[in-house]
């Protein structure tokens, strides 16, 4: 897919992954501009609807990233998020969205280096999948 620059919508937890992104920034660690961060207070507040909307609007990938198990500031938000991701990975393929386009990761507040690495891996994974059909075809 020559010249394909995916758009990835990332819902990141304020307390960890967002802080890690900040750390990556202050440490001058670059990460691909394909990833558009949306800061949320916890992965537990990411309604499946947000993810579905992003895909239907043509996002090539969606990332949800929060605190490591045991570190969620609201105790269990990330465990609930994990179930919702599991659920969506069952539903998305029937609508033609490869389940690999939806990614869940745990990136802690001090993981600035990991953040920039994971974002690079993420972009290459999505690039390999090619552009989302929702971008190319009319969606009702």
């Amino acid at each position: 897919m020559e010249g394909f620059e995916p758009i990835i919508i990332a819902f990141v937890c304020n307390w960890c992954t967002y802080t890690a992104a900040d750390l990556a920034g202050t440490s001058r660690l670059p990460y691909p501009k394909n990833v558009r961060l949306i800061r949320v207070m916890c992965t537990g507040m990411v309604d499946p609807q947000y993810i579905i909307k992003a895909f239907l609007e043509g996002a090539d990938g969606v990332l949800v990233s929060g605190c490591h198990p045991g570190d969620c500031h609201y105790i269990s938000g990330n465990f609930k998020a994990r179930r919702r991701i599991k659920l969506l990975k069952e539903i998305l393929p029937q609508f033609g969205f490869n389940q690999e386009r939806l990614i869940l990761t745990w990136i802690g507040a001090s993981d600035g280096i990991q953040f920039s690495e994971i974002m690079r891996d993420l972009v290459s994974q999505i690039k390999a999948l090619g552009p989302s059909q929702a971008k190319l075809k009319m969606v009702i």
Partner: peptide
């Protein structure tokens, strides 16, 4: 109901980058 509960140790396969 599945969305009303969770276990701490489950569904490891949906976490992380796959390739």
């Amino acid at each position: 109901p599945p969305m009303s509960v969770f276990r701490e140790d489950e569904f490891a396969e949906v976490v992380g980058i796959t390739n």
